[in-house]
Amino acid sequence: MTFRPSDASGRAVLVPCQREIETIDDLRAETAALWKAEAPKAGADAIGSGWGCVGALLRNGEADEKLAPAWRDHFRKVRAEGLSVVNADGGLDIAWPETTDGIPADMDIILATATKPEATPPGAHSVACAWLGQDGGYERYFLENVRCGIRTAHDLEIWHHIDVDRPTWLEAEGYREAVEILRGETEKQNASS
């Protein structure tokens, strides 16, 4: 999910890194692995391309003091520019995330991917139509995000368009949990209006 300062906040799930990040080599390995998940054909040490990149948010303190200069140098070496909410030093330009209870997330480093935003972002209807008009399994991105609690302010509007058209992939067993979540939220929204 790409965040932009002017957009409403979404929800995301923070997942622990595969290993402790104590050195710049650890951080480089984790960011490369995260980018590989976004771009499977990327080179082993890649952390971005023309359409997106990985950024790091380091909590003030030891992690920031120890890793920030090395991360900045690495980012500039492999990725000469920032993108969207990743600044020219490779830092995520977002506020430190909070838990659903409003407590600052208890970790030292947060890694995330950001994508190059469209000049005019697509609306919920356009996004839904793109998923409805394909059969390559790309709807999985939306439904897996919903299932895992990774949400945006536009999810129910996207869902409405998808639910009205009822594509055959909507009935896939693997999507049942996400569909139930979205239908339940829609019922709550309709009951409160």
Score class of each variant (00 low, 15 high):
D93T: 06
P167C: 06
P122C: 06
A29D: 01
E157S: 03
P16M: 07
H154M: 11
D64L: 05
E180C: 12
I158M: 00
K41T: 06
D101K: 05
E38C: 04
M1T: 11
P117G: 08
C129A: 15
W35A: 06
W159L: 00
N87E: 04
I21F: 03
L83S: 03
A32P: 02
A80D: 14
G43Q: 06
I21R: 01
L182H: 01
S192W: 08
H125F: 03
D108E: 11
A39I: 05
K66D: 13
R147E: 12
G55I: 06
M107Y: 08
S84F: 04
V127E: 11
V15M: 14
A29Y: 00
N87G: 04
D155C: 08
P16R: 08
N145S: 15
F142K: 08
R76I: 14
G50E: 15
L156T: 02
E38K: 02
I103G: 12
G184W: 03
A153C: 07
G102Y: 10
A191R: 14
E173M: 03
M107F: 06
E20Y: 05
A178L: 00
I103S: 15
G136K: 02
K188H: 07
S6V: 13
T120H: 12
R140C: 09
V86K: 09
L132A: 09
S6N: 14
P104W: 01
A178P: 00
G133R: 09
A95M: 11
V13M: 10
I162P: 13
D26R: 01
T99S: 14
E171C: 08
E22C: 12
E173W: 01
R59G: 05
D106V: 08
L143H: 06
G174C: 07
S84M: 04
D108N: 06
A68E: 09
D165A: 13
I47H: 09
T168S: 10
G48E: 09
G82Y: 00
A44V: 14
I150E: 12
E173K: 04
Q18Y: 10
D25T: 02
R176L: 03
F3L: 13
N60V: 05
T115P: 00
E81S: 15
P40E: 11
L170P: 06
A46G: 04
R59A: 10
E139Q: 11
D64T: 00
W169V: 07
A12S: 12
E38N: 06
E22H: 14
R28W: 00
G137V: 04
E62W: 07
A119S: 10
G48M: 09
V13F: 06
H160F: 00
D101N: 07
P121H: 01
R11N: 05
A88T: 11
R19V: 08
R140F: 08
H161M: 01
W131M: 14
G43K: 04
C148R: 13
D7Y: 15
